[in-house]
């Protein structure tokens, strides 16, 4: 079975089975360290089943002319605790969503395996049910096996 949660350094990708579409994702991070005085931005990307970007219509992300990307504000994490969830609603129901942590300014990748301590709450629906059958998953970055 292919993995739904894929973590690569400072990037996490959620890739749903063919028969499902994402409605909403809530992302929580554990303490982000090594950033020091810099700010952090979360670059968000979403693709529909045809591979087209549907990020523009996502509620909770904004376009940054400087970054040239859609981004969400980093919620901030206290020490050794999970952050308040960053919740994004997807109007155009993607099958894949990715989050990338960058420092600002500088656009440098934040930390290593940053999402290893994350929790993602994913609400999706079954296509065959025409949206009526909702599924709720919790994806635990800590349990992710890096492959």
């Amino acid at each position: 079975m292919s993995q739904i949660l894929i973590i690569e350094e400072n990037r996490v990708k959620i890739s749903m089975p063919d028969a499902e579409r994402i409605r909403q994702v809530s992302l929580s991070l554990k303490s982000v360290t090594g950033v020091e005085e810099k700010s952090v931005a979360i670059v968000v990307k979403a693709w529909n089943a045809e591979g087209n970007s549907v990020t523009d219509s996502c509620k909770g992300v904004y376009y940054s002319t400087i970054l040239g990307e859609m981004f969400a504000y980093y919620p901030g994490t206290p020490d050794d605790a999970y952050s308040e969830p960053l919740t994004l609603e997807f109007v155009e129901a993607p099958t894949e969503v990715s989050f990338e942590l960058l420092t600002w300014p500088g656009r440098e990748p934040v930390g290593k395996a940053m999402f290893g301590g994350s929790a993602l709450f994913v609400e999706s629906y079954d296509v065959a049910s025409k949206g009526l059958s909702t599924r709720n998953r919790i994806l635990n970055g800590g349990g992710h096996k890096f492959r």
Binding site: Q3, I4, L5, A119, R135, N136, R137, I138, L139, N140, G142, G143, H144, K145
Partner: peptide, 10 residues
């Protein structure tokens, strides 16, 4: 889930 390191739970 967190205690047991289960990656995915519905």
């Amino acid at each position: 889930q967190i205690e047991n390191d289960w990656t995915e739970m519905e």
